[in-house]
Design a protein around this nucleic acid. Structure first.
Lengths: 143, 143
DNA sequence: CAGTATCCCCCACGATACTG
DNA sequence: CAGTATCGTGGGGGATACTG
């Protein structure tokens, strides 16, 4: 069983949201705001990592913290709250002592994973080129 | 006329870079660094906008500034320098008076466009859901 | 025209301490 | 266990002025 992701690559101008939003002076437009909102979330330090960690299993607060080395309680809380507010994860409190709270991806959060994977694949494939370019640039411009 | 690119997304564990980097305590690992580097670039305020503006035409400094309302000279310069250092755009100085400097995408920069489009499409398609979720969350948690 | 150079502000994030 | 509350800091980014 495999999912199929289809991307339209316009040979002729079939303007995508991105193209249109670039034309029309991006920020301020509705599309500009949508893109900015999403970029703010995936561009921050922890969101994508949290989503990735939840991709297969529902996890508790402390378990998440163990899976994501370096994250502080504060940032884990904040990140989880934002993801919950945006409808990307759910937070379930079980009425027990001691308290048990579980987080899991929503379907919407699941679709974000596809994006994250495309991003990660591009990053990993092209990072060597980027590093080489940086080295060359630094060599040419240092004094 | 449009080309169709179809990608098989494995339903069974064929770990992608993203998945692997989530497993292995992302930051610190090589993949973690690659992803972070790319995220830092596309997550910032102007890079994606600059790349998008250059997607079809080579442009001069002032032209870029006109196409991207709100960007300051300083931020345009900084953004262009980083993109150039990462090998995503080229900077060509023509020996003329007055000076003429033109920026254009490299092939590597061109591949970034694909990413940007996937991102933008996801953002535009899902933004309504996100906004609804936010409204619901805020209504439920306000005091 | 295509940038530097300064100054300043805000806030994302980290560290630490405390709590229902 | 799963969080708040508080304090402090770095640097991303804006405004403005100046220059080869």
């Amino acid at each position: 069983m495999a999912t199929t992701l289809t991307i339209e690559l316009p040979g002729e101008p079939t303007p995508t949201g991105y193209e249109r939003s670039c034309e029309e002076a991006s920020p301020g437009s509705d599309h500009g705001r949508a893109i900015r909102d999403v970029l703010d979330r995936i561009g921050d330090k922890w969101s994508l990592l949290v989503v990735g960690t939840l991709r297969r299993e529902r996890l508790r607060f402390t378990e998440l913290q163990r899976h994501i080395p370096g994250i502080s309680q504060r940032m884990l809380t904040l990140t989880l709250r934002q993801l919950e507010r945006d409808g990307l994860i759910t937070r379930t409190v079980h009425a027990e002592v001691p308290p048990r709270v579980e987080y899991e991806l929503t379907p919407l959060g699941g679709t974000l994973i596809q994006l994250a994977m495309a991003l990660a694949d591009w990053a990993i494939e092209n990072h060597p080129r980027i590093e080489d370019s940086r080295a060359a640039y630094d060599a040419a411009h240092q004094r």
